[in-house]
Computed example of a mutant assay.
Amino acid sequence: MTTASDSATAAASGANATERFKSDKLVGVENTPPERVSTLAREVLEAVHETIRKHKVTYDEYNALKAWLISVGEDGEWPLFLDVWVEHVVEEVATEHREGNKGTIEGPYYVPDAPEQGSSGSVPMRENESGTPLTWTGKVTSTNGSALAGAKVELWHADADGFYSQFAPNIPEWNLRASFTTDADGNFEIRTVRPAPYQIPTDGACGKLISAAGWHAWRPAHLHVKVSAPGHELLTAQLYFPGDEHNDDDIASAVKPELMLAPKPAAGGEAIEYGFVLDPA
């Protein structure tokens, strides 16, 4: 099986994530009032100023920060940096009102319009794709308990080497990416492989920060999902596996107890049951 392990780089993945972000995400804020822009910008800068005063930041440290910020942009790693270290708080604030399922960060590697597989099917994958076969069954309902027929469940995850299709070379375009639509009773069944833990790219600017700070770069194994239905709020989440050594110290701070799966042995692999409750819009 061909993998990307020999040729994927942080810069290449970062550039792909940056281009995808610019084409997909820069909408919805055109009419933000100047007063709100001023408030947010001013308070962020005030927090930076207070950090400088509190820790007596030197000019050498300041210039190192400038050089590092420039390299983040040159490496195309702003989506990676923000999604790893900032997005989890934005997600927390944006969804604190919800009564249904807990969500978590999207991350930098989502791609819309993945192949549709119906209410029961397998994600596209290479022949002999590494990983334990995993069968996932679940149901999508509203907070009032009613089944949501025709709900959309989008799934994507990394391969056994920690790489995502469309962001690393030598991987088929839709590998380990698919969309599913619930049946009349709100049910779905997905067949994929269990992903592995992986390190975020460390050969670029984010890796330099990790090394300088003495942090680790690991994310626990996880499945990404987006779940949507007419008249309901979009749910974005990641689902995790018990026993992963990085569930408690995920570099992206995205793990929540409510997102933990419970795999059971099954013929030829493992099986999980996990459903979603969506809040009305």
Rank of each mutant, 00 (worst) to 15 (best):
T3H: 01
S5I: 14
D6H: 12
A8Q: 15
T9H: 05
T9R: 04
F21Y: 04
F21A: 09
K22M: 14
V29F: 15
N31W: 05
N31A: 12
R36E: 13
S38I: 13
L40E: 14
A41G: 08
R42P: 01
R42Q: 09
E43K: 15
L45Q: 03
K54H: 14
K54C: 01
V57Y: 05
Y59I: 13
D60F: 15
V72I: 06
E74H: 14
P79L: 14
L82Y: 12
V84M: 00
V84R: 05
V84W: 13
E91Y: 12
A94G: 00
H97V: 02
R98H: 10
K102I: 15
G103D: 01
Y109Q: 04
Y109R: 07
A114K: 09
Q117F: 04
G131I: 01
T132W: 06
K139R: 07
V140L: 00
T141R: 07
T141L: 03
S142G: 12
T143V: 08
G145Y: 00
A147W: 06
A149P: 05
G150A: 09
E154M: 08
L155S: 04
D159T: 11
D159K: 06
D161K: 09
G162E: 08
Q166S: 09
A168Y: 01
A168W: 08
P169G: 00
I171L: 15
W174M: 12
T182G: 11
D183Y: 12
A184G: 01
R191E: 14
P197R: 03
Y198V: 15
Q199T: 08
D203S: 04
G204N: 04
A212T: 02
W215E: 10
A217E: 06
L223K: 05
L223E: 00
V225K: 00
K226I: 15
G231V: 01
A237R: 08
Q238W: 05
D244W: 15
E245V: 14
H246S: 09
N247Q: 04
K256G: 04
K256Y: 06
K256E: 10
P257L: 13
L261P: 00
L261G: 01
A262P: 02
E270D: 08
E273D: 07
V277C: 12
